[in-house]
Amino acid sequence: MSPSFIAYSALGLAILFEITGTTFLMKSVQFTKLIPTVIMGLCYLCSFFFLAQALKVVPLGIAYAMWGGLGIVLTAIIGVVVFRQSLDVPALAGIGLIVSGVVVLNLFSHSTTH
């Protein structure tokens, strides 16, 4: 397997653990429920571990933009689907801009490693 594939797989896992941790942050009810709080902490630890692995190959700015951007978008979707939260037009426009930024980074930037 190529180092690039491994790095982007690690970044994908970092994103998944980050959105899972954020979901359990909501379920922890401001750290008043032990089990969701512990799961949240473990997910964040795993997220940072895999983000660090991705940084062996992917530049920091690119990795962090993808980790943060996709984390925001996916967490917003979870908020709508799981927690029945609503998004207004400006929120949807902002999310669209985040997705556009990640797409531009990956398709047009020579800073990324593919």
Rank of each mutant, 00 (worst) to 15 (best):
S9Q: 08
D88Q: 08
L92N: 01
Y44F: 15
F83C: 06
V81M: 08
T113V: 15
T112Q: 03
G71Q: 00
F49E: 13
L45P: 00
V73F: 13
I78H: 02
L60E: 10
M26N: 11
L25G: 13
M40L: 11
S100I: 15
K27N: 11
T23H: 04
L42A: 06
A52Q: 07
T112F: 10
F24S: 07
G21F: 00
A76L: 04
L34C: 02
T113K: 12
I39D: 05
S111I: 00
K27P: 07
L105M: 10
V102S: 12
F17Y: 11
G41Q: 11
I95F: 01
G101F: 03
T112M: 03
L97E: 14
F31N: 11
Q85T: 10
A91R: 08
F50C: 11
A10M: 01
V80M: 04
S111K: 10
S4A: 14
A54E: 00
I78M: 02
S9G: 12
V99Q: 02
V80Q: 03
G71E: 04
L70E: 01
G68N: 11
S28F: 07
G69R: 02
Q85V: 03
Y8V: 00
I98R: 09
I15P: 04
A91G: 15
A65W: 05
I77F: 09
G96T: 00
I98G: 02
F49W: 13
Y64K: 09
V29D: 14
P59Y: 01
C46W: 11
I98F: 05
G68A: 08
S109R: 04
N106L: 00
I19W: 03
V73L: 14
A10E: 05
G21E: 04
I39G: 02
L34I: 13
V89I: 15
P36V: 12
K33E: 12
C46D: 02
I72R: 13
G71P: 10
G21D: 10
A14W: 01
T112P: 05
I95L: 15
A14Q: 05
S109P: 03
T20S: 10
M1E: 06
V73H: 07
L11E: 11
T23Y: 07
I72K: 13
N106K: 09
I78F: 07
K56M: 10
D88Y: 09
Q85E: 15
E18V: 12
C46N: 15
K27E: 14
